[in-house]
């Protein structure tokens, strides 16, 4: 199953460490954190779609997808920019004539953005396992709601 960088949005503190880490490793950042008007912050990077829209218009096959794994070969990129039109997330960026996109930091065990995330909000995982942690936390919360409140003056040991 292909792995990708996902975000637990309930944890992102908007510190932008991922941007700096990516910038250091890849010269330019392929992840960007948008802090919304309230406090919510959302890191956006290539979603490594399993049925990607960006591959279809690519004239030279620089972007391709096999078995749900998105591949990119920069030498085949003509810089036509059609993929930037197709990508719904704006994560394929035309820079210096070719496309730059997240390549999950080949050669590193975990992509730099995930390794650096202080809050543990970025996760490098298989898409199927994404809900597990949230479900478990939700279940705990529902279960806790059923507990009788502690009586005044007593502390649960």
């Amino acid at each position: 199953m292909p792995e990708a960088v996902y975000a637990d949005l309930s944890r992102c503190i908007g510190c932008r460490a991922c941007e700096l880490a990516c910038e250091r490793e890849n010269k330019s950042s392929r992840i960007s954190v948008k802090v919304l008007s309230g406090l919510a912050a959302a890191p956006v990077s290539c979603r490594q779609c399993e049925i990607p829209l960006c591959t279809a218009p690519c004239p030279k096959g620089a972007l391709s997808c096999e078995n749900g794994k998105l591949e990119y070969e920069a030498e085949n990129c003509t810089g036509c920019g059609l993929c930037t039109l197709a990508c719904p997330f704006g994560t394929a960026v035309l820079r210096a004539g070719i496309i730059e996109r997240c390549n999950l930091c080949p050669g590193m065990e975990t992509p730099a953005c995930v390794a650096t995330c202080p809050a543990g909000a970025l996760i490098y995982t298989e898409p199927g396992s994404l809900g597990e942690n949230i479900r478990q936390r939700r279940a705990k919360r529902m279960n806790r709601a059923l507990e009788p409140p502690a009586p005044a003056g007593r502390r649960a040991e």
Partner: peptide, 25 residues
Amino acid sequence: LCIGCWTCSMVCNYGVIGRQKEARV
């Protein structure tokens, strides 16, 4: 219509969006 980007799974507060592994949706 699904492209398997899993953005839905990141925002679901209950973690109840699963994955069909053959179809990758």
